[in-house]
Design a protein around this nucleic acid. Structure first.
Lengths: 202, 202
DNA sequence: GTCTATATGGCGATAGAC
DNA sequence: GTCTATCGCCATATAGAC
């Protein structure tokens, strides 16, 4: 007979994910997480002992998710232009399904940088690995002299900002949810074009 | 003899700005704000009654600051290419001096979108005014067929993301504070080039 | 207007029964 | 493993003297 450890633990993590993503560490309430999971508050502490432990688990998962995705797409064996297109398109697609993750990471990064950086260093897939992999790949191609760091940041900025600033931007443009989704969808094509413009052999 | 209302009120606002920018609404403590202002906790409530009132004042100020800056630069009477260059360069310069503001706005926007949107609507300088002004201006020029909304978002993304994601990026690239500042400085030139590439008559 | 002292409530965490 | 009840603390907010 299987005990209920895994079931309950996963329910808790799922609930914690929802609440932490929406409210951040300081804003989240253990009671709210318990309600979301359909269990008692004491049980949260039985499984994770402290709010901080629970948060760490959620943050690490979010972090792994977003950078594993980046890594996989960069590592595929296809030509540069195609790869950039895939990278950007799949990355944006990922955000459409996981729109809370980027804001969550940026928020906690700004409010507790030291702690968050320690997560970077211990992570199995680190941002710097992703960046190094990208650098290697870029040097293999004959391209316009390009600062790869700048390229890296530009791609992330163009993909992530529209997701994170969505409440503001949607309001400015007076877009419905559907219209904004379509707008993002269109960027899967326009961002690769914009990026290729900056690195293509003249 | 002037009473001390304005002096004290300004001291409080200045202190609250510092603490809220660093910790966000939930993370900030009234005691910490009082200490920062060199006054007593009870006095905060005498002037602003609730933490929320105090926060609103700070948020509105941050909001006004960032969009007034955008508006001013867009509204200057110079040719397009020059204007874009100024806009981006001055906007980035503004962030170098006010690096907490973008992260602060994004954080609170993600954690309480409804409330934040109400600030947008009541603000004297609204983001949509800035956007409309930019749109008018773009149509006066003969340019590559361009979605002005997309252009607007791209500029904001490229300027703001490196500031907001600084803790992560600085860690990835293993940059010192000075090196990262230089890196941002360089973007005052490269971002306008990149943007002009996308809209210049072919 | 500014302070000290205190009320009030909520939150993370634990004790202990089942 | 899961629950109810409760502790102890800390944060916002108020009362009231000066």
């Amino acid at each position: 007979m299987a005990n209920k450890t895994h079931n309950t633990e996963e329910k808790i993590l799922e609930a914690a994910k929802t609440v932490f993503h929406r409210k951040g560490f300081e804003g989240a309430r253990m009671q709210e997480i318990a309600d979301e999971a359909g269990i008692n508050k004491a049980l949260l502490h039985y499984y994770f002992r402290t709010k901080e432990n629970l948060f760490d688990a959620v943050f690490k998962a979010a972090f792994r998710e977003i950078f594993t995705k980046l890594f996989m797409t960069i590592d595929a064996d296809v030509p540069l232009e195609k790869k950039l297109k895939n990278l950007i398109s799949e990355y944006i697609g990922f955000f459409q399904k996981n729109s809370y993750i980027p804001g969550f990471i940026l928020t906690e990064m700004n409010q507790n940088p030291e702690k968050i950086i320690s997560v970077f260093k211990s992570a199995p897939v680190s941002p710097s690995m992703v960046f190094e992999r990208m650098k290697e790949f870029m040097y293999d191609e004959k391209l316009e002299k390009t600062d790869v760091r700048e390229l890296f940041i530009n791609i992330l900025a163009l993909c992530i900002f529209p997701v994170v600033a969505r409440p503001m931007l949607q309001n400015i443009f007076d877009f419905s949810d559907e219209q904004y989704d379509q707008f993002i969808e269109k960027r899967k094509k326009t961002i690769p074009q914009l990026i290729m413009n900056t690195i293509r052999k003249k």
